[in-house]
Computed example of a mutant assay.
Amino acid sequence: MLSEVLLVAAPSRLPRIDCRGGIQARCTAPDTVHLVSAAATPLGGDTIEIRVVVERGARLRLRSAAATLALPGARTPTSDTSWQVDVAGALDVDLQPTVVAGAARHLSTVAMNVHAEGRVRFCERVQIGRSGERAGFWSGTLHVDQRERPLLRHRVELGAGSLADDDLGAPRATVSELRYPTTAFAIDSSFAIDSSQRPTVLALAGGGALRTWQGERLTG
């Protein structure tokens, strides 16, 4: 199944929403949109394409109604999600976790362009396996350009078959949060991690910062 979501935020009006396939979007406040699953997706073979445009002077908060569960399909275990993001205003993306269950494989790519006055918070949470499961694979790629010049190139693999896979102690959960142009991060419960394992903060040369964490399980 191919699911397509287009969100366009412009100043002084509600966001434009256009959806096809198993993912729908609902405007829940003047500047807030929630993604909602209308079908069981992603299954192996499914593709989710999300396009987000935030125009200058506009604000958009993007949330989800529930966690995303990636499951293997009958013919292939692999599904994928791709984001195309263009920000000239203020964008805050904070979705519920992606849980990669069983023998599923899920690939995530985010390509973002931030304009001169753009402001971004983009938070992604991933858990390999449901309760009692350690199988599953996730790959995440985050490419961010600042006015079409490279700002960040970041890639993480997690789970069975990843470069860091180890049955004895490899992490099975990760959280990453990009902020631009600010470099400050508040310590709050929304990051959903074990407080005994401190996240790593990487300041970016072009402004902004990336905070990452890996551990056994998300806490919330």
Rank of each mutant, 00 (worst) to 15 (best):
R26E: 04
G169R: 11
A184G: 08
F191H: 12
R211P: 07
V120N: 10
A70I: 05
R16K: 13
L35W: 01
R121N: 06
T219S: 04
L7N: 02
A209I: 05
D18M: 11
G57N: 07
S195A: 15
Q24I: 15
E216Q: 13
R147F: 00
V93E: 09
L91P: 03
L2Q: 15
D145L: 08
S131G: 12
G45F: 11
I50V: 15
D167R: 15
T81L: 10
S64D: 12
R155E: 12
A66Y: 06
Q84L: 14
P42G: 10
F185S: 05
R51T: 13
F122T: 01
D80E: 15
S12Y: 13
L142K: 00
N113I: 01
D145A: 07
E124L: 02
G140Q: 06
G169C: 10
A173H: 03
A205M: 03
E49D: 15
L71Y: 15
L178A: 03
A203Y: 10
L7I: 03
T41Q: 09
T47A: 09
R149K: 11
D145H: 05
A170W: 02
V53E: 09
A67Y: 13
G140Y: 03
T28S: 10
D145Y: 07
V175Q: 01
S3G: 05
R198H: 12
D167E: 14
R130A: 11
Q96K: 14
G169I: 04
V85G: 06
V99I: 15
A111R: 07
E117W: 02
L71N: 06
A164M: 10
L6H: 07
G21H: 08
V52F: 00
T78R: 09
H143G: 13
E157Q: 03
L2G: 05
I50F: 06
L158P: 01
L158N: 00
L91N: 03
G207K: 10
G44P: 13
P171D: 08
Y180K: 01
R155F: 01
E4Y: 13
L2P: 12
D86M: 03
A203F: 07
V120F: 01
L168A: 14
L6K: 11
A186F: 00
A173T: 04
D194V: 03
S162N: 08
T68G: 09
V156P: 05
L142D: 06
T28F: 10
G22R: 04
R26I: 14
L35E: 01
E49S: 14
H154R: 07
T212Q: 08
E49I: 14
E177L: 12
R147A: 14
G208P: 02
G140V: 04
T78W: 07
S108V: 08
I48N: 13
G21V: 07
G159S: 03
G22N: 05
P77I: 00
G159P: 10
R130E: 06
T78M: 13
R211W: 06
R121E: 12
R20T: 06
M1D: 13
R119Q: 10
L152W: 09
G208S: 03
D167L: 15
D166Y: 01
V156D: 14
I128L: 05
E157K: 00
G57P: 05
P150R: 01
T81F: 05
